[in-house]
């Protein structure tokens, strides 16, 4: 007759428990590192703007703040990123001594090529966003959504999500998706947070429709 097996002893007594905990911790730490550090690094590619731009310098030279260059057209549409036409008045010839200025004038102004600026706040194609409704009708300032970019001396690196192709600014710098300032993220929840808070009850400027279609095409 064989001896009954002492299961309890076999499980704990050979030190397996220690190993299990150790490996559990190893797995935990490794995946935390992957999730918090490696993944964001892999997810975003880094691109520099074709030319650097000093917002702070320009804002001192213009009269109407951001709207001097990022203006509304007569029909209320928003011009977005300035075109060469707006720069050409001053930058027909090289101003100052920076390398970027020389590149800008030589490679773009003189050749009549538009600068392919990378747009940090570009929204998906399925949304309508009307600047005029927010800025003119809603009385919001640029900082609420775009932060203090107007005070920066140089353009930050543009990070592009390799899966979606969108700018990192939409999800926000913080990979956890948490935000401190209103301008930290630009996802749909951030829009609706404000819309809810302000009790926005408007219909779409473009289509006149309500509910989802206020923003969505």
């Amino acid at each position: 007759m064989s001896k009954p097996v002492d299961h309890k002893k076999e499980v704990l007594g050979d030190g397996s428990g220690g190993f299990a905990i150790l490996f559990f911790l190893l797995g935990l730490v490794a995946s935390l590192i992957v999730g918090w550090v490696v993944y964001p690094k892999l997810l975003y590619s880094q691109k520099n703007q074709p030319v650097d731009f000093n917002h702070a310098l320009h804002i001192d030279l213009v009269d109407e703040g951001c709207e001097s260059c990022h203006f509304f057209r007569e029909d209320g549409t928003y011009s977005g990123v300035p075109k060469l036409a707006q720069c050409i008045g001053c930058h027909e010839e090289v101003q100052g001594e920076t390398k970027d200025e020389a590149i800008f004038v030589e490679q773009y102004v003189k050749q009549g090529r538009e600068v392919p600026w990378l747009i940090y706040a570009k929204q998906p194609d399925c949304v309508f966003f009307s600047h005029v409704a927010h800025v003119k009708a809603g009385g919001m300032d640029c900082v609420t959504c775009h932060g203090h970019i107007g005070e920066s001396a140089s353009l930050k690196v543009y990070e592009e999500n390799r899966i979606t192709g969108y700018s990192r600014d939409i999800w926000g710098k913080n990979i956890s998706g948490l935000k401190t300032n209103t301008w930290d993220r630009m996802k749909m929840d951030d829009c609706s947070e404000c819309h809810e808070e302000k009790g926005v009850n408007a219909t779409s400027v473009q289509t006149g429709k309500g509910a989802c279609f206020v923003c969505h095409k």
Partner: peptide, 26 residues
């Protein structure tokens, strides 16, 4: 047991990281 614990730990850690949520969204 070691591999199993590693996987369980990895799963727990992954769940505690933004990876699955961000990846789903992306």
């Amino acid at each position: 047991l070691s591999i199993g614990s590693f996987i369980v730990g990895g799963a727990a850690g992954t769940a505690l990281s933004p990876l699955p949520w961000k990846l789903t969204d992306d």
